[in-house]
Nucleic acid binder design. Structure first.
Lengths: 191, 191
DNA sequence: TTCATTTGATAACAAATGTTATCGTTTGTC
DNA sequence: GACAAACGATAACATTTGTTATCAAATGAA
């Protein structure tokens, strides 16, 4: 699982092995809750196989914030970073193989990494990138119609459309399942 | 202008003066364009007095992204960081007094600051905070009605409601000016 | 296989929001 | 002060989107 990342980190063999040694492998069925609403997030997950959804309970209604697939890392980021009770639920969509690391161990790794200029700058770039991604997603909500957002999703994140049940996609796009159905049928007509 | 920030930065008197010396003061009338669409952002502004709006031209329609007031720093962040042509326009709303610094000078300052652990961590925290703010703004678009978003705006950013013309607020909330008018009149009725 | 559950499509109707047009008020400029 | 431009409210109508209900197809568990 971790070999593919090995050459991306200028670390000694010992450090690398120490860091990797903090990860634990688990296999879980579909619809497994990895983090409950109100819980304080203490684990960061990396997906070896499968698919995870992060969502919010908004007055009983599903509000999907993000989907994650193979090789991505997942946490309820605000809860994980600041030890808040998580407003988000993290759960698997498909049966999944995951690796997790405890926050305490990751914090130590991050502190150490910050002293390596190359990795420190990478961390900062990552944070910038994340902000840009959010900005982009955010603006598509203001400027694009739901139909346009759905088309962008097909273009830019085909994995989501292919692997995720449609009602989760509707909740991700911020529209009702009925409306998403209408959009799809209209797209078919215009072909 | 800068004295108020002096004690927040553990810098020698020389460094401090060197950094502050890179800033230039200007006074501009209302509706001055500070950065045009398509231009590459090379200046970061700090507002001494006045109010700035960052907006996008979406097929001829105003899409306001953010408002800035006294003591805040402003740039078309993605253009400034990555030297892209800016999709955003930066312009004053009120007559303003501004300080600007050239990107080349700021880059040097940031590189130097990264070597000071305290300031480096502050930079990283800032980036996290910015991401959280975007997440929050983003979710309010999915989960709240325009009326609720307007009420939150009054609560959380009263400055905007007080100082900014209403059609810019509508464009910031992602609704038509007519709809914002309706929301306001409905709120008055229910009092 | 069989049955229950999940998923997705569709119709009918209701509510929210946008568009266009008009008018009065405020603001800024000369 | 006088005029033009900007701003904001409102009405009438069109469009988009949500809600509820129903049904069919796909999926999963026994």
């Amino acid at each position: 699982m971790f070999e593919q990342f090995r050459n991306k980190f200028p670390l000694s063999e010992e450090k690398w092995n120490e860091y990797v040694g903090h990860f634990n492998r688990i296999e879980v069925p579909a619809k497994t809750t990895l983090l409950e609403e109100g819980e304080i997030s203490k684990k960061l997950f990396i997906i070896e196989k499968g698919c995870i959804r992060v969502w919010f309970n908004n007055n009983g209604k599903d509000l999907t914030s993000q989907f994650f697939f193979e090789n991505q890392s997942v946490a309820s980021i605000e809860s994980f970073m600041k030890k808040f009770p998580s407003p988000a639920v993290v759960e698997t969509i498909e049966p999944s193989v995951l690796w997790w690391i405890h926050k305490e161990n990751l914090d130590i790794i991050i502190e150490e990494i910050k002293e390596i200029p190359e990795l420190r700058d990478r961390l900062i770039d990552m944070l910038f990138q994340r902000t840009f991604d959010y900005m982009k997603h955010f603006f598509s909500f203001i400027k694009d119609s739901p139909a346009q957002r759905y088309l962008s999703l097909i273009q830019e994140k085909p994995q989501i459309v292919q692997r995720v049940p449609q009602h989760y996609i509707a909740s991700y796009l911020g529209i009702s399942t009925v409306h998403l159905s209408r959009i799809k049928s209209k797209l078919l007509q215009n072909k």
